[in-house]
Design a binder for these strands. Structure first.
Lengths: 183, 183
DNA sequence: GACATATGTATACTTTAATAAACATCAAGA
DNA sequence: TCTTGATGTTTATTAAAGTATACATATGTC
């Protein structure tokens, strides 16, 4: 996404201004054209790795510091446009609340389960951790050989590298929040 | 440089193979074309940030882990093709032994000073550290208000954010190794 | 053996990143 | 006021990133 372009925009501009350099100076030091640098600082560019490399090298800085997110944002995610997927004939519904983002490293889902609804997931890749909180209702969660019954307010954390199951063992609609954390 | 492309090539291939995915799988998960992914894995591509973002997001991984250098290399730098710059009418010569590299964060120079040769540097940007080792001869180094006389085998470390001077106070050729470290 | 499916490679094309040069803007200094 | 120089912006062109499609090569399976 253009998230990264904005980070780069911010960091480059910051470095350039801290060092009191003009676009021409930076162009000369990095070998990247002035026009392109201007575009990058405006966040209107989608540079290649080699361009970023040239900037990092010329400015004597690192990739990470160039691509670092500046500070906290103020970002609203609306459940209106949250995409969702159904399972178990529509009785198990998964809504993506916050999609995965490489900077963040995790994603957030809301899960709605009709009474008796059931879902089974195969083992994810190594290093995935699931954190489930029961917002409403009750659920039984199994991972490998372990089983746990959860009520409203309960939270379970488990490693997702093994097959696991979600089941609504109550008589009413159960709502979960699921955080998937990737290493 | 294509250093980064190689890191990306290695890391992507590693992830893909660890997870037993085909290029088509990754293409579908990331939204990046199979052809481009193949190129990237061969290290023959120079992807844009948005492409890397798509890969990181689709693979549920981070930028840093994708761009991480895999393991130690085995890389020879020849002093033959080391560029050099002269000062003080050719009596102060600076050879770049290892050029700056964003992954490394520092660079190495060799400095040759004829007897009496002299060089003055303005303050560098904040966070630069200089490490000077006398390989041969003697030198007097000043940084701000501090002065130090160095003989063969001596090393001096100082902060480069103030004006500093190098001078060969001996009767013979003095050779220094200079490491410039950037924060 | 012939067919089907899956996987990586090569090729033709479209889109766009990157450059270079001209242009606009502004602040000294004569 | 009129230059002059420095700085960022705009525009036209070129170089290459990215896509889509077709191709080659296996690896089963009937």
């Amino acid at each position: 996404m253009e998230q990264m372009s904005r980070n780069l925009a911010f960091q480059l501009k910051k470095i350039r201004q801290q060092r009191h350099l003009s676009l021409d100076d930076v162009a000369k030091a990095t070998g990247v054209s002035k026009a392109q640098l201007a575009q990058i600082e405006k966040g209107e560019a989608n540079p290649t790795v080699s361009t970023i490399w040239k900037i990092a090298a010329g400015m004597r800085t690192s990739f990470s510091s160039l691509l670092q997110a500046p500070t906290a944002h103020f970002m609203k995610y609306s459940s209106k446009d949250a995409p969702h997927v159904d399972e178990d004939e529509g009785r198990y519904r998964v809504y993506s609340i916050i999609p995965y983002n490489p900077e963040r490293g995790w994603e957030l889902y809301k899960i709605e389960m009709e009474p008796g609804a059931f879902s089974r997931s195969e083992a994810h890749t190594e290093g995935v951790e699931e954190t489930v909180t029961v917002i409403q209702g009750q659920a039984t969660i199994s991972a490998g050989e372990m089983h746990e019954f959860l009520e409203e307010g309960d939270t379970l954390v488990f490693s997702g590298h093994q097959p696991h199951e979600y089941k609504n063992t109550s008589e009413k609609l159960t709502i979960l929040h699921l955080i998937l954390q990737y290493k």
